[in-house]
Design a protein around this nucleic acid. Sequence first.
DNA 1: TCTGGGGTCCTAGGACCC
DNA 2: TCTGGGGTCCTAGGACCC
Length: 395
Amino acid sequence: MDAYFASVEQRDDPALRDKPMAVVGSGARTVLVSPSYQARAYGVKTGMRKPEALLLCPQILFVKGDTQKYTTVCSQIVELLYSYTPDMEICSIDEFFLDMANTLHLYGDIEDLASKIKSRIKEELGLNCSIGIAHNKLLAKLASEMAKPNGIKIIPKQDLSDILDQVETDALCGIGRKTKETLACMGINTLGQLRRYNVSALERKFGVNGKRLHLMACGIDESDVIPLGQEEEMKSVGHSMTFSKDATDGSLLRKYLLELSDMVGRRLRKARLCGKTIRLTVRYKSFFTFTRQRSMSVPTDDTKKIYEMAVTILGSVRLKESVRLLGVTVSKLTQEPSEGQLFREDKRKYKLNRLLDAVNERYGESLVSFASLSTSRKHKRVISPAWRPHGNRNY
DNA sequence: TCTGGGGTCCTAGGACCC
DNA sequence: TCTGGGGTCCTAGGACCC
């Protein structure tokens, strides 16, 4: 989808249409999550801070993101695309891979099909998208980036090297800022240069990734389109939050940990998972960020146990600065044990958690919660673009 | 108004075991 | 009297993605 969150907001509010605007988070220290194309024309980019954006484009409008809306629209897109092939992978809230190998004969020409899908998304959902077509995911993704905004791009096999020769190394998904810099130091700026570079020299520099880089530069990607319901199991569940003000007070930090542990616990229980390893993330005022993790003998999904472990870990750290962000992540996940397998004390906790979850599910996010949290829990959180509408990450 | 939030994968070093 | 070798698991950090 093109400038997804921003486009949904522009579609729904005529006052935003054709204007430089951006979707932002709800916190005091948010960044731009999705700038409109009119804003991008001024050099405004995703991840920018608000003052920076205002400097580039003083008339830019900011809109707080609406999680519910983007997930609903995403489900509508999924439904529409699914009607063309069941071999569809949901890559993120606004990106999808369709493997047309098995169903293309039903539709004929691939480019006609792409235009049809594009116009249906425009007519039925009022949104622009870009479609890339190629014989693997790596190149289809590259093609879709090249097609933006609002276009269709095909990379035919015979034109592959001509196209790759021109583009910069970080155009490919998997080559980011650091790798691009390292490659640039070796005199490699385009994929053509990368492809012709000595493979063993790449391997010496990048280890196993050296071979991968070479294959990528050749446009080779053997990865499959992973259809709905066949996604890998979730490996970790976590939440973090940047405070509106940096914090040093221990009791305040513990309150934040309780809130984060509760959010993580709820998601684990909803997914019927327990985790063994608890990881605490701390970001200082200076932005220096580090993690400390500890494993328990028995996996848990209990808010209090997660919280207590997080507090223990925090207690073992000698804080050197005031804290800007805390995060709690649970990993080493396993299926939750059935109620019958629990000891008596754990059985009570299990029932209590389930009951609270059920009440909150029915009557609103945090109707019943910890007394110490009664003053917080007010601000809405903006969705991560990595959210998925189906499969494991539905929680 | 200085820098969000949710993930995955890989690597390196150390503890521990046989 | 001066230190083997193979394997697994855990922790911490970093690159990358949307």
